[in-house]
Design a binder for these strands. Sequence first.
RNA 1: UCGCGGGUAGUUCAACUGGCAGAACACCAGACUUUGAAUCUGGGGGUUGCAGGUUCGAGCCCUGCCCCGCGAGCCA
Length: 598
Amino acid sequence: MSTETPVDAPDDGVEAQASTESTSTDFIREKVIADNASGRFSQRVQTRFPPEPNGYLHIGHAKAINLNFSVAAEFGGTCNLRFDDTNPEGEDQEYIDGIQEDLAWLGYTPSGPALYASDYFQQLYDWAEELIGKGLAYVDDQDAETISTQRGGFGKPGIESPYRDRSPEENLGLFRGMRDGQFADGEKVLRAKIDMQSENMQLRDPIMYRIKRVPHHRTDDQWIIYPTYDWAHGQSDAIEGVTHSLCTLEFTDNRTLYDWYLSQLDLPYEQPEQTEYARLGLTYTPMSKRVFARLVNDGLVDGWDDPRMPTLRGLRRRGYPPSAIRAFVNKVGIARTNSTTEIELLESFVRTELNRTSLRRMAVLRPLKVVITNWPEGEERQLEAINNPEDHSAGTRTVSFGPELWIEQDDFKLEPPPKYYRLSIGREVRLRAGFYITATDVDTDPDGNPTTVYCTYDPESEGGSTPDGRKVKATIHWVSAQHAVGGTVNLYDRLFSDPHPGEGGTDPLDSVNPDSRETLTNVRLEAALADVAPGQVVQFERLGYFAVDLDDPSVFHRTVGLRDEWANIQKRQNKAQNKGKHSNKDSNKGANKDAATN
RNA sequence: UCGCGGGUAGUUCAACUGGCAGAACACCAGACUUUGAAUCUGGGGGUUGCAGGUUCGAGCCCUGCCCCGCGAGCCA
């Protein structure tokens, strides 16, 4: 954690992006510019990030956070964190704390202390009485099912409640009774009196208050009636002085109601304006707190901070730099089009950032023993290795070299396939930061798998080149057997195998990838990897970026692999082979797949 | 069925508001290389959902259609 903390101050982050990233704008910023030009809101810009504290933040929230904070920063405005805590069921102080931690980690600082919709409960209540007094709200005695039925359907009119025309006096008495505990949970609700014939369902006498004898994490048992989202949100915005209330597309129909409530009240404030944009969609990634909660509760992952989770905490543990997440959501942009971004774009931002900043280290994940047969008896060498070729200020380190080494099993082949140019008998490769070695012999186990490779080294090749200037095709990583340290390395694959989990009404959990984590315990790490800070991300050369676990520094999580051309070559070779061998089978399979998806 | 929103390379977005349809990521090829990484260069890719109309000129304006998403919680 220590190394991950405030790399950059939030304002720097926002401003740096605003100036270095594309200068193109979006419809929301254009709207703000237009508002400022017309003098609306007196040139004031105030946004807010309003999560409900009933779960942890995920990458989708990062888009909302970036939007709200960036817009405020770009126009000299403010942006607060407001907890939309109007429904105590599922809400918890744990999430309030967690959300604030995650927000800070991402690199944003609210303009003031955290705000809470629950702080406005009294004001909201008073305003409700005001609406009742104006004959614009009434207490309904019917149950949820009846009210739902009477609401009608798309293209069908609704039916007015028989309690709709109670007098303001009666309504006031009943509403106070609701507040004072005279009725059971669900026995009565307060409804706005709008239009049961509206083709916008939100306007068919929406619920403003429901009775819930559930203790609230902040107000405890002070209230047993709680305002609904629609009744609370716009008024909370107005109380705080929000000008631009940004939310996602599914609230589009609610905007009319948002405006209606605000226009009925005698507010001493400017009326805020709601604008909707598309939420973030990511391939292979459901974006739903409900789904994440099931993953956690069903034990499919270790918790909300499991490195496979798209939660901010998960990504942090996984080693995703907050700056990469910010750059990503910034690049995705803001539009009203429902869209799903390829997760590769996110990973590309992670690689770009980590390539620049992470120290290089050598780690052998699937070890194969190498014996240098012509190494001078009893000698040991300290070699100098560059810490980061992208950043020379990162300096160098020494790595120990001796007669017995570990290399990656993948880096030696008994029978090298076409285009493979790593080690095999008779071939010479370079050891990274070390010597050239040539394989001369190999031991195998009864199954024919190599167990020890015997090599000779060229004493003149130290530093990576020889006086005769001969070239080697491959450079491989290695670790001295005498000096290697152990550890645990977690390799991760996508948590979901379907690019669009849950598509077509299926259960997203049906496509959970059972092999999303592979834990390797028989790894050999260079000695420097015993000295790392929790949360630090290093590059294991030729393999990928790996984050030191936040709690156990001997555990590494693969953040993301390096681009791997050899893997692509192999994939293409396999494909070509299969095509040649089973062309009929394959084309049938393809046709079926197409039919299934169409 | 009704209302609202949306449709521009594989993906996400641009296109100075009617003037030669671009970028990033992805993909392919080459160069370079002590990471098959990074970096650099180049390339393939589009009937701007479809059909009409207005205009010298339409991704943008008009008409009709098609497709996708959201909306009938006392969730947010």
